[in-house]
Simulated assay, not measured.
Amino acid sequence: MASRKPFSGHQGKPSASRMLAEEQARLRAERGWSYRELSQKVRFDHTYLHEMETGKTLGSPEVIRALDEVYGTGPHLSQLRELARDSAFRDKYQRYMQLEAKATVMRHYAVSNLPGLLQTEAYARDLLRAARSWKQGDLEEQVAARLSRQEILTRDEPTDFRTILDESVLRRPLQSTKDWRFLLSHLLDTVRSPHVVIQVLPMAVGFHGLTNTDTMLMWLPNGRSVAYTETGYSGEMIEDPREVEHLRLAYDRLRDLAWSPPESMAFIEQLLEDIPCVPPKST
């Protein structure tokens, strides 16, 4: 096997996601395979493989495992992917991310935007872009990292996830009407899973115990519960049992005020119906 070339990266230490992309490109080039040839070996679309090698996406765990098998690299690429996923988030969120990955039950309340576990690619990109100025490569890395977290809802033993969405969350449009419609359709598809429940809190409820507090409650395999509260600029991990219990009670009371899951789905369906379709482009 040819000797490994140093990762190019940018100035300073290269990111884990860039290392993952360049390592895939190196392994394929050493074997002289085209994307289509590699696609036939791993049974994943060649355009998807190209996006992985150019850093547009981290790729799913399944395709990375398939690449490790085809290249005979053991868990090498899979380990790089895990590093890439973790390093894409700021240090202060690392503790939360570690616990989220382990959680067996999650209960969430959204004040102003969807939780990352339910976001589409377009939604995540619009939201992250609005928060700060990004270099394009850095923005796409953050989008890919955020979407990769959704694996906990589809793994062999998925997390049981419930979210209460403030009505304003769903009424806030995306830059593209088409993307907004796709987002609402995505939510309707997601709740087909028995492990996902969405409820909507009508704005007519007024103030309540979690007003202005985006909240996540998590139960871990050992039975311990923790909480995480967040604003657009900071987040706080809460592990004191008394404080967690206070938030849990506030959440339970809030759930009593929300529309039922069927009523919530009917609201989303009506909202989707009310959004105008994108007019066809003139030829």
Rank of each mutant, 00 (worst) to 15 (best):
A84C: 01
P158Y: 07
S193Y: 11
R172H: 04
D256K: 04
R162K: 09
T213N: 03
F207C: 15
P279A: 15
P221N: 14
L27W: 09
A250M: 00
L220T: 05
G74Y: 02
D252H: 12
K5L: 14
Q40V: 07
A101M: 04
A145C: 13
A21E: 10
P173N: 11
A101H: 13
L153S: 07
M216I: 05
L257E: 09
L58C: 06
M218P: 08
P158L: 10
A204Y: 15
Q40I: 12
Q150I: 15
P280Q: 08
L67M: 07
R181Q: 07
T73C: 10
A144H: 00
Y109C: 11
V111N: 07
S148N: 04
P75H: 10
M237S: 05
K178A: 15
E23L: 10
L139F: 15
K281R: 15
L254P: 02
L247W: 06
A66H: 05
G137S: 08
I64Q: 03
D240Q: 03
S87K: 06
A144C: 05
G9S: 11
P279H: 12
I64L: 08
E167D: 11
E51Q: 12
W259P: 12
L77H: 07
S168A: 11
Q199C: 00
T104M: 09
E53G: 13
S148F: 06
H76G: 10
H246C: 14
L153N: 04
R224N: 13
K102R: 14
M265L: 10
V105K: 05
G116L: 07
Q175R: 15
V200E: 06
A103R: 07
L272T: 09
L77Q: 13
Y35W: 13
T159I: 13
T120F: 01
V205T: 04
I238Q: 00
G12T: 09
G209D: 11
T104A: 08
A29R: 02
G232K: 03
W259R: 12
T159Q: 07
M237R: 10
P173Q: 09
I64E: 08
M106D: 04
C277F: 10
D179L: 04
D252E: 00
A29Y: 03
T213W: 01
A84L: 07
R26E: 03
E69K: 12
S168H: 11
Q136R: 04
L117N: 07
S39F: 09
Q270C: 06
E22I: 02
E51N: 14
G55C: 10
P279T: 07
V143F: 00
A84P: 05
S133E: 14
D86Y: 03
T211N: 08
S15H: 11
P194Q: 07
Q40H: 08
M106H: 03
A131M: 11
L38K: 00
P75K: 11
S176W: 06
A110E: 13
K102M: 14
L83E: 14
P115A: 00
P262R: 08
T215P: 15
I152C: 06
R65L: 15
D68Y: 09
S193D: 02
L257I: 05
D214A: 00
E37M: 11
